[in-house]
Computed example of a mutant assay.
Amino acid sequence: MQVLQVQLAVQADPSEVGRARRWVRTRLSGHGLDPDAPIAETLVLVVSELVTNAVVHTGCPAVLRLSMPVPDAMSGDAVSVPVRVEVADASRTAPAPRHAGGEATNGRGLELVELLCDRWGWYPDGSGKRVWCEIDPNATAAVAAEVPVMDEFAWQL
């Protein structure tokens, strides 16, 4: 099994979060994945949250890494391997999910990561840390298939 790993250096500037989201969409599209597929939307949201945390809470540059299975040359199918997102930053402070109140405008990032990913965690890395998460593409597709689609009439009720 082969895994494609790509990474992006992110500067300590909140505007870099948008650049990271665009970069992920481009990488996914270049890898043959529909950028509007449920897993793509999930990955973009997770990247947005993890990069935001790194940039906002450390005030230092970070490195975003994306690891994806390479489709099998014979069948064209990707091996059932999770897609992994990692963000390395310069802080050794452990990430701690918060439970934001209803009116809070922040504090939900890691809670979203926890809900959207199959696994997530962190570990010390050099003088900082690395926060990671994994998403099983098959599980994401199965959940998306179960979500009912509302037609235009239902929205008007």
Rank of each mutant, 00 (worst) to 15 (best):
V3M: 08
Q5C: 06
V6F: 07
L8D: 06
P14Q: 07
P14R: 07
P14L: 10
S15T: 13
V17Y: 04
A20N: 06
A20I: 08
W23T: 00
V24C: 09
T26R: 13
L28V: 13
L28T: 11
S29L: 14
G30K: 02
H31Y: 06
L33K: 01
D34V: 07
D34N: 11
A40H: 05
E41W: 06
T42S: 15
V47Y: 00
E49A: 12
L50Y: 06
V51Q: 02
V55E: 01
V55W: 01
V56H: 09
V63S: 03
V63G: 01
L64I: 06
S67W: 00
M68G: 04
M68A: 14
P69A: 01
P69Q: 03
P71D: 11
D72C: 09
S75K: 02
G76M: 03
G76Q: 05
G76P: 07
D77L: 11
V79L: 10
V79F: 12
P82F: 02
V85T: 01
V85L: 01
E86Y: 02
A88N: 03
S91H: 02
S91D: 05
A94L: 09
R98H: 11
R98N: 07
G101K: 04
G102L: 10
E103S: 12
A104R: 05
T105C: 15
N106K: 12
N106M: 06
N106S: 13
G107K: 00
G107A: 00
R108S: 15
R108T: 15
L110S: 04
L110F: 13
D118K: 11
R119P: 04
G121M: 04
W122H: 15
Y123F: 07
D125L: 12
D125T: 12
G128R: 13
R130H: 04
R130Q: 06
C133I: 02
E134W: 07
I135P: 09
D136Y: 02
P137L: 05
P137I: 03
A145V: 03
E146D: 15
V147T: 05
V147I: 13
V149L: 13
M150N: 13
E152S: 12
A154G: 07
W155R: 14
Q156N: 07
L157W: 14
